[in-house]
Write a protein that binds this DNA or RNA. Structure first.
Lengths: 277, 277
DNA sequence: CGCAGCGATACCCGGCCGGTATGGATACCG
DNA sequence: CGGTATCCATACCGGCCGGGTATCGCTGCG
């Protein structure tokens, strides 16, 4: 199986339309049809069911889509990391979610900078999932939050844990309570559309939740409700209050890096991180 | 970067000889030279240093070798898993190290077999590292032992932990002791050659340690010394005794599976395993 | 100095990838 | 119910690239 075939299949599987997929790939539709047919023939497996009006994935196709995405990410990562290894002066890219854990990140980078043999660090602040740049080689290390961020296929080390709080408007009936339970929160109406783990949004009405400041605005307007790690207290606006949710799962901050990482700099940074946590 | 190029590069990087690599790949040497040169050109990076007498890897080459092996494994896994997903009756392959944790495995398989919706289970008993079949798709789940088996790039769930014991001949001076420390053990002579984590053996004299029964024979002959998890007591031969090593790291048995696994059967098995542990 | 080993270069051929043109099936619409 | 638009498959052609053979250039060794 060649990566070209995988790119083609992933494009078709995502578009579920040969014409658009060919467009996206910058080739004509017939060669694409043929390539997919060849791939299916070589695998001896039907990946798509075509009814001249609609294309859909078979079970095997769904498996190959997931595997193929991972492989294409790994290939992109391999290219980037190979090029990075050829640079005369190494550097380190750390990914973190924008607007969270600012001070733990600062402490970590300060501590690392004082290490002997420390390397210049670039920061990559992600609006969405900070684990993605790790998978395609754009970053060398990431700060993630279990269970929010997926850590599948990554090596991780736990840095710390914290409880979660519900954020509600100060004028809200629950605002006076000293603690809540998940049941209290999930009983409240939530009119916003939340991203899925892959970053896409469900269809329907409601605003798509994209970042914290926007989310807080929605909460003030009573159009969203959310349970978040305690640190959000720091950046909380005037009209909002945070109330501990006693039975919410603990959120653990972890430092993650790709498997097979042989980089001295990554090892140093992880050691520093786990040292003081 | 195409997988063909990666296959070619990995072959050359492993053989460090274009002729032998071409032989292994079943092609002639000139196209191989050209393919590697093209790959280097496209990446804009030197992967190999050639001095018409010797080929060696650059730093970037070593990175690409590691990444490339992982990618080729992932591609092989993708093909196998895609084909497996097309089978009308699903099945589950469980990998475990031959000659270890027999009873935990038996308990696990029994418990799983009683699950509703259980699927036929095939066992894959590995002489060497049981994580390898996970990486290239030959197995769906593996029982591993931290820190002996590498778990990089796998999802794991801890099943249990145990201490470690030193195995020595009954006639050995230490045989009467009730407990030992690592220092006691490492002071003893060890004439055997142990496999590295990648399965290869260092050069030199001494027998290559390949499995438990052979290892026990070496110990009886006073040619090897080893610290192993407590379970080995069960299969211990007459002339050997096991003595707890109090400061050895705990060995944890983990159940591991590839990331992105969407299989119902894998999820069921993991749930059963963590349920009773 | 001659030879052997090894990678690079030169050159040719065939297969495959990609393009255009077109066919066949199906849903939608007047 | 016929026309049409949409969409995937097939047919066919041309150019590129991957692979083969022959050979050269370099280097360490006897």
């Amino acid at each position: 199986m060649e990566t070209r075939e995988l790119r083609y299949f992933v494009a078709v599987a995502e578009e579920l339309n040969f014409g658009r997929a060919a467009d996206r790939l910058g080739i004509a539709q017939p060669p694409l049809s043929r390539a997919i047919a060849q791939l299916e023939h070589r695998l001896g497996v039907a990946l798509l069911t075509r009814t001249s009006r609609k294309v859909s994935l078979t079970g095997a196709g769904e498996v190959l889509l997931a595997e193929g995405r991972a492989i294409l990410g790994a290939v992109a990562a391999a290219e980037r990391r190979t090029r990075a290894a050829a640079e005369d002066q190494p550097s380190l890219v750390v990914a973190a979610k924008a607007g969270s854990s600012g001070e733990v990140l600062a402490k970590l980078l300060d501590a690392y900078a004082n290490e002997p043999g420390a390397v210049p660090v670039d920061l990559l602040l992600c609006e969405s999932n900070p684990h993605l740049p790790l998978l395609d080689g754009r970053a060398d290390v990431a700060l993630l939050h279990e269970p929010y961020d997926p850590t599948a296929g990554l090596d991780v080390e736990v840095l710390g844990a914290e409880g979660q709080v519900a954020v509600v408007p100060s004028a809200h009936p629950l605002a006076g309570r000293s603690q809540l339970r998940m049941a209290d929160v999930s009983a409240l109406p939530d009119l916003a559309r939340w991203p899925r783990r892959d970053g896409t949004y469900p269809d329907g009405s409601g605003v798509e939740v994209r970042n914290l400041t926007q989310l807080f605005q929605l909460i003030e307007l009573g159009r969203a409700v959310v349970v978040l790690p305690e640190v959000v207290r720091n950046g909380l606006a005037e009209g909002l209050v945070a109330i501990p949710v006693v039975d919410a799962p603990q959120v653990t901050t972890v430092i993650a890096w790709p498997p097979h990482s042989r980089s001295r700099a990554v090892a140093d940074l992880v050691r520093v991180a786990t040292g003081f946590s």
